[in-house]
């Protein structure tokens, strides 16, 4: 039953994809210990979902939201420093495959399906960048969130 493990497989595949495809800035996964001491910039991935819906018999629609928080220290000599960090992150928001990753006997590493980034022209399902600016007058840290919505269909009978 794919439903029993899909949450782990989606999470593991999302973590691997974004870890492999974001470079030039340190990426942390929410829930892991992190030490940002000495780092000027970093980002952190959080996954909402996956939401699982059986749209017809044995056909599952799985969707999730990938949210990456970017922390940027102000660079007084480079106005574009924050947007450069955003660019390093959003280039990873592409379609990618979901595999049965994990440490248990069910985690065979086999391909399940392709997670598709939902269309950008849909007002509800867009790659969204939200800039919060400087967090407080005493801080030189700016925060930005990026969010993309993904979806795939899985036929349980083929799994």
């Amino acid at each position: 039953m794919i439903k029993n493990n899909i949450a782990k497989w989606v999470f593991a595949s999302v973590c691997k994809h974004f870890t492999d495809n974001i470079s030039g800035i340190t990426l942390y996964i929410e829930g892991l210990d992190r030490n940002t001491y000495g780092l000027s910039d970093w980002c952190e991935l959080r996954l909402d979902g996956p939401n699982i819906r059986e749209v017809s018999k044995n056909l599952l629609k799985i969707n999730a939201e990938v949210n990456i928080l970017i922390a940027t220290h102000i660079d007084v000599e480079n106005l574009y420093h924050e947007t450069e960090n955003i660019n390093k992150v959003i280039q990873a928001y592409i379609d990618f495959d979901i595999y049965k990753y994990g440490n248990n006997s069910d985690d065979t590493g086999d391909l399940i399906g392709r997670f598709k980034l939902l269309p950008l022209d849909d007002l509800r399902d867009k790659l969204q960048i939200t800039r919060f600016g400087i967090l407080g007058p005493a801080l030189t840290l700016m925060q930005t969130t990026t969010e993309g919505h993904y979806e795939m269909l899985v036929d349980e009978e083929e799994e």
Partner: peptide, 24 residues
């Protein structure tokens, strides 16, 4: 409901194919 249903197209011989209704 559709969650209980399997939909198959059959020909005049022995061929058949299962249809994925999806959200339809």
């Amino acid at each position: 409901s559709l969650r209980d249903a399997t939909f198959v197209i059959k020909d005049g011989g022995n061929e058949e194919i299962t249809v994925k209704i999806g959200e339809g």
